[in-house]
């Protein structure tokens, strides 16, 4: 078993070295697979090396695994899938992220547009946004628990904080960096306040707003785990804490971690699709 892993790791390493000779398109396929295989093999070897045996007189020898191997993790993944926890907890986490993130966008985008546009609004809001921004959302967990109790609202509040600041700051910067000719043209053609916002300021800022949404969603998903570790009874973060506390199930811990990673990629992919909307594509292509 261990020898097999060693051989696999060696083969993967050789494939990485040998791929220099391949065309770029072939490299794009071979390299990620080879690196993945290499990582899996190393993971396996390392997990096996931490295994130890306990010999108690009068009892059969017991093997204790400290770290789960990839195989064990796969089994744990199947377990989570079949007992329904995987879907249930993923939905619970995604729900909290969705509510917190959408709330942050609903408040952050208008606030950012306003603070980017009006100097007075910027003077009033910006110092506090900038002062609160460097505080990790995790630092708010005690306050959130105090305010909302051990409920969804507490986790949603943490998510909200994590997404809010990148969105406000990104939107504000987007409006401020708008070329002056856009606004001058709009004034020149006699656009009124609301028309200016709808036809010029918002669309001009939209590509950068989308980028800030992408960052914000990444942060939201990053902090969900910590937000749910705080005694909430569902979600992928809860699963991780619960699996450890209830019987040292590190195989479940690692399986949950991998699911979190996969969903994170999925979320990022979804936001990136926004970049392809016709009216924002200009902001993502270099001429």
């Amino acid at each position: 078993m261990s020898l097999g892993a060693l051989v696999t790791a060696a083969l993967a390493a050789v494939a990485i070295v040998a791929s220099r000779g391949l065309r770029q398109r072939a490299q794009a396929v071979v390299l990620p697979i080879a690196t993945g295989v290499l990582l899996l093999a190393l993971w396996h070897l390392w997990a096996e090396s931490t295994r130890y045996q306990i010999a108690t007189p009068g009892e059969p020898v017991r093997t204790v695994e400290v770290f789960p191997t990839p195989e064990r993790t796969l089994v744990a993944f199947r377990e989570l899938l079949s007992d329904g926890r995987l879907v249930r907890y993923s939905i619970a986490s995604l729900f909290r992220v969705a509510v917190g993130f959408l709330l942050a966008a609903a408040i952050g985008i208008p606030l950012g547009l306003w603070a980017g546009w009006s100097t007075r609004a910027s003077y009033s809001i910006n110092p506090f946004v900038q002062a609160l921004r460097p505080i990790s959302p995790l630092a708010w967990i005690p306050i959130a628990t105090l305010a909302f109790g051990i409920r969804d609202e507490a986790a949603i509040f943490i998510i909200f904080l994590g997404s809010f600041f990148p969105i406000v700051t990104g939107t504000m910067t987007a409006v401020r960096s708008m070329p002056v000719a856009y606004v001058r043209s709009a004034h020149n053609f006699g656009l009124r306040k609301f028309e200016l916002l709808a036809h010029v300021v918002f669309p001009a800022a939209l590509p950068q707003i989308i980028t800030s949404l992408r960052i914000a969603l990444g942060v939201a998903w990053l902090v969900i785990v910590a937000a749910e570790m705080n005694a909430i009874q569902s979600g992928l973060g809860f699963l991780i804490v619960d699996a450890r506390n209830m019987g040292m199930r590190y195989d479940l811990v690692v399986a949950a971690m991998l699911v979190i990673g996969a969903i994170g990629i999925g979320l990022d992919f979804l936001v990136r699709r926004l970049e392809r909307i016709d009216s924002v594509r200009w902001g993502f292509t270099k001429e």
Binding site: R184, N188, G190
Partner: peptide, 20 residues
Amino acid sequence: TRPDPRRIFVFQDYGIFPWA
């Protein structure tokens, strides 16, 4: 005293909107 639609300014760059 201010811009007016009776007199339109054509800019070298950034005059027209890339999102429209």
